[in-house]
Simulated scan of single mutants.
Amino acid sequence: MRKLLSISFVLLLTLSAVLAGCSSKEEAGGEAGSKKIKIVAAHNQTSPDNPYQTGLLKFKEVAESKSNGDIEVEVHAGTIGTEESELVEKLKLGAADVVLVSPGFMTQTGIKEIDLLALPYLFDSYEHWEKVVDGEVGEEMAKLVNEKSNNDFKLVGYWSAGVRHYYGKKPIEKMEDLKGMTFRTQTSGVIADYWKQTGAIPTSIAWGELYQALQQNVVDSSENSYPYFIQQNHHKTDNGKYITETGHDFTTRFLLVNGKKFDSYTKEQQDIILEAAEASVQAEREAVYAQEEEYKKKAIDEGASVNEIDRTPFIELAEPLQEKAAKDMGAEELLKKIKDLK
């Protein structure tokens, strides 16, 4: 009798272990060793119509559907930070898992070569820009970001933020018209040096405070692409209603994940995240390209004035700065590759 009870007890323990194992696999999405993960994805724009939001919602859609819900994505539009520095700090600390950041900010993390992509008049068309970021140069940049950040950052996609133009309290007909004007842009580095040479005075204003600064005459002018500054109604202020299409920057934005956390995911989860990133790139770019014309028309319909300008003097001013910056960065070969793709 005791022997029979002993055998029954062993069988009961074995059955319990099997059931526990099945339960664990179900909770982990059916794959041994895997588990459900939640990804916090964030950008710094507050408008729900912004292309950034379009891109991250596509990331969410693909990640969740491909993983059968084992990957949950929470998208934040400016709700956990409207400054890039806040978002990157959250990425490093693990409070965010996917963020958008510009080349200018990335240089502050010690990866100086990345600022090459933000040089004035480096690109002359979207086609040229795409050849660069989707090709060999883009691959080299991604490798640099990962290695020089000690795997804190993994670059998983290149987004666009449109073509940047001047807008201010008066139209620009020639470069001399910028002389003495306060101009909201970067206040250090090559970009600041460039605008100083045009005669403008680079001024630092937080993006979230720029509408009020333009409205209250704190700053004379600014620069950005149509979808971004029109959605913020900058064109409705006295110091933002004159738009001159300088086209000085086909902007690049980096879709980053925390490299160390990425490495901790299963191979299947990593593949899904990369697939979601690729889908987000296409969705975000398509949104930007479509909104360029849409928001230009909106600006004109709402009373803004738009004029074109001969960009030749601006381009000629930029070229020696590009060469010097590339030399200082140790990125002369990368600059040559970019120019060869025109």
Score class of each variant (00 low, 15 high):
residue 161 A to T: 08
residue 33 G to P: 05
residue 40 V to M: 00
residue 194 Y to F: 12
residue 116 L to N: 05
residue 16 S to A: 15
residue 211 Y to L: 11
residue 309 I to F: 10
residue 17 A to N: 13
residue 325 A to G: 11
residue 252 T to C: 13
residue 131 K to I: 02
residue 72 E to R: 07
residue 214 L to Y: 04
residue 78 G to E: 00
residue 321 L to H: 06
residue 190 V to K: 05
residue 157 G to D: 02
residue 13 L to D: 09
residue 293 E to N: 12
residue 295 Y to N: 06
residue 104 G to N: 11
residue 93 L to D: 12
residue 253 R to M: 14
residue 229 F to L: 02
residue 278 E to R: 09
residue 54 T to N: 11
residue 177 D to P: 14
residue 231 Q to N: 15
residue 236 K to Q: 13
residue 288 V to H: 07
residue 248 H to N: 12
residue 321 L to D: 10
residue 64 E to W: 03
residue 272 I to A: 02
residue 294 E to N: 03
residue 287 A to T: 00
residue 333 E to V: 13
residue 40 V to R: 04
residue 320 P to I: 08
residue 284 E to W: 00
residue 271 D to T: 14
residue 141 M to L: 11
residue 277 A to M: 01
residue 104 G to K: 03
residue 338 I to M: 03
residue 329 M to W: 10
residue 338 I to S: 04
residue 266 T to Q: 06
residue 227 P to G: 09
residue 318 A to P: 06
residue 242 Y to V: 03
residue 326 A to D: 08
residue 330 G to T: 07
residue 284 E to K: 13
residue 257 V to G: 02
residue 165 H to I: 06
residue 185 T to A: 06
residue 289 Y to Q: 12
residue 84 E to T: 10
residue 84 E to M: 08
residue 230 I to Q: 10
residue 134 D to E: 11
residue 137 V to S: 02
residue 69 G to D: 09
residue 35 K to Y: 01
residue 320 P to N: 09
residue 8 S to T: 15
residue 172 I to L: 06
residue 242 Y to A: 08
residue 163 V to W: 05
residue 338 I to T: 07
residue 17 A to M: 15
residue 87 L to T: 06
residue 114 I to Q: 03
residue 146 N to S: 15
residue 205 I to S: 05
residue 328 D to T: 13
residue 39 I to V: 12
residue 216 Q to N: 14
residue 127 E to V: 11
residue 46 T to N: 01
residue 249 D to I: 03
residue 98 V to N: 00
residue 259 G to P: 03
residue 246 T to D: 09
residue 335 L to K: 10
residue 40 V to F: 03
residue 312 T to N: 13
residue 74 E to L: 02
residue 178 L to Y: 10
residue 310 D to W: 04
residue 301 D to R: 00
residue 188 S to A: 05
residue 276 A to F: 03
residue 88 V to Y: 04
residue 180 G to I: 09
residue 277 A to L: 01
residue 243 I to S: 01
residue 274 L to T: 04
residue 62 V to G: 07
residue 342 K to A: 08
residue 253 R to T: 08
residue 177 D to V: 08
residue 333 E to F: 14
residue 116 L to G: 02
residue 206 A to P: 15
residue 93 L to Y: 02
residue 39 I to R: 01
residue 83 E to L: 09
residue 335 L to F: 13
residue 189 G to T: 06
residue 329 M to K: 10
residue 109 T to Y: 15
residue 184 R to T: 13
residue 75 V to N: 01
